[in-house]
Amino acid sequence: GKSMNGAVPHDNLVLIKMRPDENGRFGFNVKGGADQRMPIIVSRVAPGTPADMCMPRLNEGDQVVLINGRDISDHTHDDVVMLIKASCEDQSGELILLVRPN
């Protein structure tokens, strides 16, 4: 029962946390971006990678809403990719995605 009373609806959203592998990869592909007038969508999750094995799992078709708490709705494709890659150089190394499952 988390009524937001008309605020931005966060129902049906899933928080996914993962750490990169030893090569600094999370193991998923993203498409879209503000410059392409498309939402950021997970287009592929490679088997056996952090994105595949985290709980809850990242799934193809998931729409990425927030990256490490940051609203990416105005970010270009390249901005989003840089933001994800930067998170593995972060102190925690953790990537936190808020996604809307497809």
């Binding site: 998923f28 592909n29 993203v30 498409k31 392409q36 498309m38 990719v81």
Partner: peptide, 12 residues
């Protein structure tokens, strides 16, 4: 013109 077949996917 719209290029709707031009979808870039980047691996991260």
């Amino acid at each position: 013109e719209e290029k709707d077949e031009c979808i870039i996917a980047t691996e991260v």
